[in-house]
Computed example of a mutant assay.
Amino acid sequence: MSVAERPFDLVLFDLDGTLIDSAPQLALAVNRMLADCGFATAPEATVRTWVGNGADKLVKRALAHAGADEALFATARPLFGDHYQACLLDGLEMYAGVAATLQRLHVAGYQLAIVTNKPSDYVAPILDALGISSLFSLWLGGNSLPQKKPDPAPLLHACHELAIPVSRTLMVGDSENDVLAARAAAMPVVALTYGYNYGRDIADSHPDWLFDHFCGLDSILP
């Protein structure tokens, strides 16, 4: 298939739960924060269900789980940030097939970008540590714009910055937020089943394509 015949020119990727499994590091930081605040820790499997709406929401969910007063957020949030920064890269890995597929898409001439709700300060160090920074034309963190997913603004901003129409752009993510953002932007969307979706089946969000493995993208991105 020639470049002119491809259905897409730009592919937007979520980060946590799509390209990387960051739950081990997030759980470690959350539990160190909870311990600092005098609360019991939570199993990693539980923390996984809290991931997806950015760090602020993650901390608020952890505090609610612990039965803490909402006022404690002002103290707990910076504690979490310090702990997560300290363990950000510990054992960090991409999901199976991610590195090879991203490299193939880059070589094939697709423009690639990251649109994540993860705070911006963490994104570049992760991409650099994994050796994939050069594959992306743009990345947006959860605080890069006033809005974050499920608002469509970050997706539309990426299209604008890279001068590629929404109709030629594909969103790839693992949560309802990704699907909702893509739908609101009138953008086709792929959902991956292995990520974080608050313990719910991502199929219920009705993405355009649903894959169990990242390499499923090969079937629609030649």
Rank of each mutant, 00 (worst) to 15 (best):
P78E: 10
G142W: 07
L72G: 08
A45Q: 14
V115D: 09
G38Y: 10
Q103E: 14
A113L: 11
D128C: 00
N53E: 15
A124H: 05
A108N: 09
Q111Y: 00
G91H: 08
L92Q: 07
Q25E: 13
V123F: 04
L34W: 01
A27R: 04
S137G: 09
K57A: 10
L58R: 08
A27L: 12
R104P: 11
A55S: 14
A40T: 13
W50P: 12
D56Y: 05
Q103V: 08
L72N: 02
T46E: 15
L105N: 06
P24H: 08
H83N: 15
K57Y: 01
A45E: 15
L63I: 06
Y122T: 01
L130C: 08
L28N: 13
G131S: 03
G97M: 01
A129C: 08
F136P: 11
R32L: 14
Q103S: 14
Q25N: 15
Y95P: 14
D128N: 10
L138V: 05
G52H: 02
A100Q: 13
V47L: 12
V51W: 02
A42G: 01
T116Q: 09
R61D: 03
L63W: 03
N117T: 02
L72W: 08
A108F: 00
A29N: 09
D128Y: 00
W50Y: 15
R61L: 09
S133C: 14
S134F: 02
A23F: 03
G131V: 07
H83I: 11
E44D: 13
W50Q: 09
L92M: 07
V98M: 05
L130I: 04
D56E: 14
G81R: 13
E70L: 01
Y122K: 04
F136W: 01
A108Y: 00
G131I: 01
L72A: 13
K118L: 02
L138Q: 06
L88N: 03
L138I: 04
G52F: 04
Q103H: 14
A99E: 14
Q111M: 09
T101K: 01
S144L: 02
A100F: 02
G52K: 04
P146F: 09
A66I: 09
V115I: 14
G91E: 10
I114N: 03
A99W: 00
Q147Y: 13
A62R: 04
G67D: 10
R77V: 10
D90G: 00
A86P: 02
L130W: 03
Q147L: 11
L89I: 00
N53V: 02
M94Q: 10
F136R: 00
R32V: 02
E93L: 00
T46R: 14
D128K: 06
G54D: 12
L102H: 04
A68C: 12
G97C: 04
N117F: 00
A86Y: 00
A45L: 05
A113T: 10
A74Q: 11
M33I: 08
G109T: 10
V115F: 12
D69L: 07
D128S: 08
I126K: 08
G81K: 06
A113K: 04
Y84T: 03
Y95L: 07
Y95A: 07
G141S: 13
F39P: 14
L89T: 04
A66L: 10
G109D: 13
F73I: 05
L140V: 11
V30A: 15
V98A: 01
G38S: 11
D82C: 06
S144R: 03
G52I: 06
T49P: 02
C37L: 15
A68H: 09
A35N: 12
A55D: 11
A62T: 04
